[in-house]
Design a protein around this nucleic acid. Structure first.
Lengths: 206, 206, 206, 206
DNA sequence: GATGAATGAGTCTTCATTCAT
DNA sequence: GATGAATGAAGACTCATTCAT
């Protein structure tokens, strides 16, 4: 009982978050238990409740942080880009692949555990996701507007491209024949192809 | 106690399967309980165990049936087709979209609940899935061989296209602005575009 | 697991109710646990939930049964009585003392655990209690009307008499110097005295 | 960490006691938690342990203070009284009603939470209670001795009168039709009636 | 085929309490 | 005096499952 010497709240919370990401991604939020999680970080289950009042709050914390960081990371990347939608699409695809390959657990959770959120929590996370989708959609709209892309239904194209890109995590494993940057290149080309952007641009933008 | 008047094994099982698909899709396999399921079909939980020895067996039954039916349905469609990979890709895309839009629960389960399968069960379902993926992959390989498609990494392209097509279920809802066949058309075009097939073929194949 | 040979639902429930009365009366509803209760009746805690969906439902069951039985018992006694309020008051006092002394646990719960009831459950039990109080109040009103009793505030007198009578359970123990029927006699006289009924009637009515 | 500016031990303790009385009276000692209590006084739970080593000690503190104050208050009132048992009974009844109506929480706890006391603590509080009961009992014995009261079993009469008087708290609420002093008058008359003291004395003593 | 009674392991969560800071 | 971090035991309740009937 009582405080562990040298213990510090924020460090402990970060450790737990990391472990929870892994655990929830592997077993699913519903199937994972607070006991298992506590064991992973060598705490007692009750100690977890110092940091998050409920299991759901922990999940929300993970998802909220992921979505915020994702949007923030894109915002930082976006400022470096011109207004050319072809360049932006290429950058978006590569960014998405890279970000996803680096954070498979976060991504997995974000796509799989939405149904386990209570309505108000769902709404918050969903809003972030729509925001992210609109980034791509706006690129496609602009691309179509200036005649550089074919996207008769930009929303559909955006959803299709995002699904395609996100799918990389279902099969890619480090150490295989293809490197992460090979994969990035391939997906960036396919994404461009979906909206009928010719291939020459890819290599420059890489 | 004793048999319900008018009850029939296979009919009851089919009813339960339908309810289980819905329930597992909505709440997730881990979060759904046999009690909830029993209540949905107005039975007592213990009665379910006459049909499936465990909850997991029920899940496996659902997934196995879905995958078998999917492969069977494709097999039936495929015999009508020529060997032209462009025609086959178009047919595959349309088939996939149609099949998915008609069976959102089955599809959802097939992609979401694999991690909840015990290893041997996982292996069986996974084998079906790879078989299905290889259908598309073989089309792309042939398309590339005869120079009609660009798929430097056919496996990657196949995974990308399947992810893209399957993604339709995350956003499509009946009664929206786009009809199911509009969507089918759009996705078939995008799938072709991924491997740089020009657009003329689409309309004929529709 | 599974059914115990020869087990029967209603018998088991009755056993549990008995044990719960004892346990809740001794420790208080809030302080008593379902584990303790299960141990008392040699069941596993989960089995209790076959009979009552929650701990609160068990409490309500106990209180509801007690109040219903109390009112029923009085109704049966009342039919034997004349309309004379003096006779009725005497009968009521004796009935109350006897009933309370015979069921100390039920009575204790009924007076102590009302605050632990959720509002709707409280309302139901409270209605019974008011009904019972009104029995006495009506006697006093009639007694005052015909000039046989002094009860300027019949409600207050009724509450006072009931509190007085019910208090017997706080000190009476079997086997002491006074028998239950001594106590009944004493309390009946005191109750009569509260509304200034002279003593002569007591002995006859005993 | 460290002391809050302007904080003062005894003041804080008094605040906590007040909140604990309210909380324990409303929810019951067993059902109330140190966390709830801490929140009520805007402290952290651990801070409470500076004042009372355990939750039980806090309860004992409350009960002990109440009983001591009650006995002390009666002692102060008693010195003003003659030896006339009729006057003393009237004064006792009025004192009891007044004291109870003014401190419903304390009174409630004193009657309800005795069972939650550990044996030695129970013994201490119980001793006070018996002392208080003996005050009334002694009055009745004296009254019977000089022929001014009828109390064949003074202990029983004392218990009955105390139960009757204490019951006022179960129904009386400020702001109703009857004022506190109406109620005091009514109860003083009923208490006298229990031991067959005639009515004339009441008004003088008011 | 189906049910009601039961189990044992487990769920999330709260509890009173402790002690380094 | 007070806090934040932690504990271990226990809380009510649910789970998949079993088996006598």
């Amino acid at each position: 009982m009582a405080r562990k010497p040298g213990s510090n709240g924020e460090e402990t919370a970060a450790l737990v978050r990391e472990a929870a990401l892994e655990l929830f991604a592997q077993q699913g939020y519903a199937a994972a238990s607070m006991r298992q999680l506590a064991k992973l970080v060598d705490m007692r289950p009750s100690a977890l409740y110092h940091y998050w009042p409920t299991k759901q709050d922990l999940l929300v914390d993970l998802l909220e942080r992921h979505m915020t960081a994702l949007l923030q990371a894109w915002a930082e990347r976006a400022v470096e880009l011109s207004n050319d939608p072809i360049e932006r699409l290429d950058a978006f695809s590569r960014f998405h692949i890279r970000y996803h390959l680096a954070r498979p657990n976060e991504v997995f959770l974000s796509y799989m555990e939405l149904r386990n959120l209570e309505p108000q929590n769902f709404a918050r996370i969903e809003a972030h996701r729509r925001h992210y989708e609109s980034v791509l959609k706006d690129i496609l709209i602009e691309g179509a507007r200036i005649g550089a892309m074919q996207a008769p239904e930009p929303h559909v194209s955006a959803m299709a491209i995002i699904a395609m890109l996100t799918g990389v995590n279902t099969w890619y494993r480090d150490g295989g024949r293809l490197s992460a940057s090979d994969v990035e290149q391939l997906y960036a080309e396919m994404a461009a192809a979906v909206v009928r952007v010719g291939r020459q641009n890819k290599t420059e933008a890489a």
